[in-house]
Design a protein around this nucleic acid. Structure first.
Length: 454
DNA sequence: TTTTGAGTTGTTCGA
DNA sequence: GTCGAACAACTCAAA
């Protein structure tokens, strides 16, 4: 018998957000249907996991409990206690790794410690990739519970939004294992061979979009690996792109490695000097960024894509995060919390790594001068302006030369395109060169102090 | 212990 | 337009 226990209170401050809940509902719906089709059933419960599990075990007479491990710090603590309580109650427990290629504690430096830099971490992983066991096929039949077990209806979990803001999500995604397998097949067939370059292009569907499926366990990274290897046999020319794709799986591993070894980084910078960083909290700036009204088209396009579909292209994530933390000087946690609520692939490990990396306070020594120029990034990665025009229709009629920087358009051009800056589309919230220099100065204030005074 | 090479994804400036 | 250098110095990981 399969059991899902809904217990967001046990996830503390980082309980799943609205977009994650939408996905979860759809995914559970699919899972229940898939189990039913094989003769089984999904029992849904709500409440503290330990009590619910003990209760279900009493009802069913179950002797053994199996699950796949989770890695968010609050859930590790919960599941450790859970396992002890179940053993005390006479149940046999066994947990497995399905979510990751390697357990976060398995990969160690020569000194036995955790890695803080991706490249050596990934080199160490690569030496063990070939030894990974191949994924096993799912069973054909799943036995039904021997007697009826009380459970909730999915709707009782109250996961779907009350007002229908989820239409864009419905159109963009197919949650569930079937959708996940279809996505990975489509990716291998149509985009994998150009992934090395294509993954940077928000104007095309050339990234894998597997992140929410991976996050919800509908697909495992070992399955991804196996599928990619099979596809490689067909066209050898894609080797470089396949490596790039597998390396992205490696980043996911690295994020979990860091979260395991530095669990406080969900809320505090890994680089302690950043405790002193002169952030400049401003609700109006934050809100404009959230709503896609910064005046920088590539940023606003990304924020609107996120709001509409629950997802944003990774290249654009970096650009919007750089603008928020560096040019607008808003705390990276504000960005992390917004992503947490709006992303269907919100993952504590990946979200924490991404935001700390962009803010410069994370694991890799991100050089202080890495501040994305939203105009250059837009021209490089949205050369035909299709991404901007799709998400910012109010400036779509501007000629190519001004779509990425409407504030430079002469009055006559704006008038012809029917755009009045400040009314139809905002002026930039900040001047890029000035805010860039201000950010560089702010970084200088927290640089390593000189030698200690005598 | 010391040394050495290197570090996801960038931008700007000047030749 | 293109290209290479500069942008600080530091920390990490391995030899």
């Amino acid at each position: 018998m399969a059991l899902y226990v809904h217990s967001p209170d046990e996830e503390g401050e980082w309980r799943p957000g609205a977009a994650s809940n939408w996905w979860l509902h759809r995914s559970l719906e699919q899972l229940a249907a898939a189990l039913h089709a094989k003769g089984g059933a999904l029992v849904i419960r709500c409440g503290p996991a330990t009590e619910q599990l003990l209760d279900v075990a009493r009802d069913t007479g179950a002797r053994q409990v199996f699950w796949n491990r989770l890695y968010d710090p609050a859930l590790v603590a919960r599941d450790t206690q859970l396992k002890a309580r179940l053993w005390e109650a006479g149940l046999t427990c066994e947990s497995f790794n399905s979510a990751l290629l390697f357990e976060p504690w398995e990969i160690r430096t020569g000194q036995g410690g955790p890695y803080r830099v991706f490249t050596p971490f990934w080199r160490a992983c690569q030496q063990q990739l070939d030894a990974l066991p191949a994924p096993q096929p799912a069973p054909d039949r799943i036995p039904a519970p021997s007697k009826a077990v009380a459970g909730l209806g999915l709707a009782e979990l109250d996961l779907l939004p009350r007002i229908r803001w989820d239409r864009g999500l419905c159109a963009a995604w197919t949650p569930g294992e079937t959708g996940a397998l279809a996505r990975v097949e489509t990716f291998c067939d149509s985009a994998m061979d150009k992934y090395d370059e294509g993954r940077n292009r928000p104007d095309h569907a050339w990234s894998s979009r597997l992140s929410p499926h991976l996050h919800f366990g509908e697909l495992s990274p070992r399955q991804c690996l196996a599928t990619v290897h099979n596809a490689l046999a067909d066209h050898e020319g894609a080797r470089k792109s396949a490596e790039a794709f597998v390396r992205e799986l490696g980043w996911r591993e690295f994020a979990h490695h860091l979260l395991h070894h530095f669990p406080a980084t969900t809320n505090a910078p890994l680089d302690a000097r950043f405790e002193q960083f002169p952030w400049s909290p401003d609700d109006a700036l934050l809100r404009a960024w959230q709503r896609g009204r910064t005046g920088y088209p590539i940023v606003d396009a990304g924020m609107r894509e996120l709001w509409a579909t629950g997802w944003m292209h990774n290249r654009v994530r970096m650009v919007v995060a750089s603008l928020l933390t560096k040019n607008l000087r808003q705390h990276w946690l504000e960005g992390a919390r917004w992503f947490w609520d709006t992303l269907v692939d919100a993952s504590l490990a990946n979200n924490t790594l991404g935001w700390q990396w962009t803010a410069g306070c994370g694991a890799d020594a991100a050089p202080y001068f890495r501040i994305f120029n939203p105009v250059l990034q837009a021209e490089r990665y949205d050369p035909a302006r299709t991404y901007i025009r799709r998400w910012i229709p109010e400036i779509a009629r501007l000629p190519d030369g001004y779509v990425h920087r409407p504030w430079l358009a002469p009055a006559r051009v704006l008038a012809t395109a029917g755009v009045q800056l400040g009314r139809d589309y905002p002026q930039p919230l900040v001047d890029f060169p000035a805010s860039r220099n201000a950010a560089l100065s702010a970084y200088a204030t927290i640089k390593a102090p000189g030698p200690p005074a005598p």
